[in-house]
Write a protein that binds this DNA or RNA. Structure first.
Lengths: 341, 341
DNA sequence: CTGAAAGCGCTTACAG
DNA sequence: CTGAAAGCGCTTACAG
């Protein structure tokens, strides 16, 4: 390349003795170019070590070929799986998928919006798992604002009356089928560690409650402990739960919001000399690879992160306003057994 | 905004009754603008719902404010941690960090280079952990080519004579201190599951061999099994190892290339009715959060991914050609005990 | 402090 | 099939 700067289309044109329009046509590859001219231009491109500027091209075409995914914690393998699948699908469609961290508090804000808009992102996927149940009105207003600039898809979870496109995990179904399975094994004192979202239709808590109802098990509020989605919180929540109950009321099964919380809960149970599954059965969520290697192997729900990620990209690219629910499959392992009594 | 398109600086200028230069100055915020003019322009920006185009700005300034990180598998929480820390550091410096998947085969290729160059990326971080020991000359040639367009930093691992900037994990030290610790506990039949890279100075295998030497333990090639960095491979490798040995020669300790491999090895040991640590001690690498929740809790090496990630960004931004080594710390847990004999 | 004008590196009608 | 020219939305010397 020319010293100090990248070669441009002008350098190539001069070198080849043609106009920049012709060089552009060669790069584009869409239009017919006379073979001898083509060769001259190709040689000039080689000689100049020329690479077209995607920035200039995008600027001209008024697109960025860039999509965005906004996630809370990439360190969580569950999100990493979603992102990976989405990235791959986006790449296949000629887009790059950029990652933006969710602002602290897990709610979107103006700063994030400005970043997305100024970058002229072609579409954004927002993870709503820990977001949409806080400050819903304000969040919706911000999303509406964002929608004026680009397609937006909500991911993982969305408010019940969310008016735009969404691809959500069947959180309700996760909890529902777990409770049903536990009931079939004779459990009736089933605890729940997770978000308490009584008014959200597609929530684990509602699935938990309604499944209890269907199984004829009375709902007890003190079996539900609010819990953030990490190991430490799981451990703390489990301790809290046991402390609040008499031994006779100890649960015989625990449903956790995700796998780390389940691991934390198992640790707490162990420190209380409670055996898993002999005393308490445990079910996590997301079926991360390490669950199979926990002792006892942790039961979990396969929430299909890959499918979630690639579906979100598909919907984004067709600017869909559909609501899609991704089902989950219960995977039973050694951490679950029949209740003793 | 004007129907059908985003407002531009021209719309705002017309609305405010000033020139586009003045609007630009207001946006930039660097130059003094007469307070009344400032107000007029601000009002016009509001009214037009105007957001400056970062694409146009970058295009004009000939920068992208974008850095790239090329990683093999984001699904591995170890890489996710590196990326997270790097992303944060980049954001603090006003850059966006884009993720690019390593091409299959874990070696960089022309297609990847073109993507980076055409996007006018301001700097690239390449993960060399599984890359630099394959096809080294070709890889180096490609990197040299890339270096003509942007700063490049090699991450995780680099060839011994790598001429450019690198921030690498002390893989040698990882293995070395693990072997030393095991030897101190009376182990002498120590197996190694990982990459066999006899000629690479900063490799686990060399650390393993040299530590054995220092401890007066003869090196046996059949205690080393080549192994990819995932659970399945770990399990297979462990099975292979045991199959190839007589019972009397079974190792009393195993060093694994990372935590998933260690988990796989533990599973294989279990299926051979070998206890951990009663029969065989196991050490993983990277100290992922779930290691503490394995049964028995897995010993590992904390390789400081956060520090690795943020250091790489720092070096990239100052276009450094230094070589930096990030040390690792052995974390002993229940999976390691003294040798029986 | 403000405006007119050139330029960043491309694409794409429009003529020829 | 090819070239001249306008334009994408900004920034930034240069005058005034």
């Amino acid at each position: 390349m020319a010293a100090g700067r990248n070669a441009t289309i002008y350098d190539v044109a001069k070198e080849a003795g043609v106009s920049i329009a012709t060089v552009s046509r060669v790069i584009g590859g869409k239009t017919r170019v006379n073979p001898p001219t083509l060769e001259k231009v190709r040689a000039a491109i080689q000689k100049c070590n020329y690479r077209p500027s995607a920035i200039a091209r995008d600027f001209n075409r008024k697109v960025s070929h860039t999509l965005a995914m906004v996630l809370p914690e990439l360190t969580n393998p569950y999100y990493a799986q979603i992102y990976s699948a989405a990235h791959e699908r986006a790449a296949a469609a000629g887009y790059v998928l950029m990652l933006f961290p969710m602002p602290s508090g897990n709610t979107i804000d103006e700063t994030l919006l400005e970043l997305l808009i100024e970058r002229r992102i072609d579409g954004a996927i927002l993870n709503g798992e820990y977001m949409t149940h806080r400050n819903t009105d304000r969040q919706l207003a911000l999303i509406k604002q964002l929608k004026e600039f680009m397609p937006v898809i909500m991911l993982g979870s969305a408010p019940s009356d969310y008016p735009y496109g969404s691809v959500v995990t069947d959180l309700y179904g996760c909890a529902y089928q777990a409770v049903e399975a536990l009931h079939a094994l004779g459990h009736s004192r089933i605890a729940f560690l997770g978000a308490i979202e009584t008014d959200v239709p597609n929530s684990r808590e509602r699935g938990y409650r309604e499944a209890l109802g269907k199984c004829g098990i009375p709902y007890k509020a003190n079996y539900c402990v609010k819990c953030e989605p990490d190991v430490k919180s799981g451990e703390t929540a489990m301790h809290e739960l046991l402390r609040s109950l008499t031994f006779a009321d100890y649960p015989t099964a625990v449903l956790a919001i995700n796998d780390p919380v389940a691991l934390g809960a198992m640790k707490a149970l162990e420190s209380h000399a409670l055996g898993v599954p002999s005393d308490v059965s445990v079910i996590g969520c997301d079926d991360q690879f390490y669950t199979a290697y926990a002792k006892p192997a942790l039961s979990s729900l396969d929430t299909q992160p890959q499918k979630t990620g690639s579906t979100a990209i598909d919907m984004l690219l067709k600017n869909s306003d559909e609501h899609i629910t991704i089902g989950a499959k219960l995977v039973l392992r050694a951490s679950v057994s029949a209740a003793r009594d």
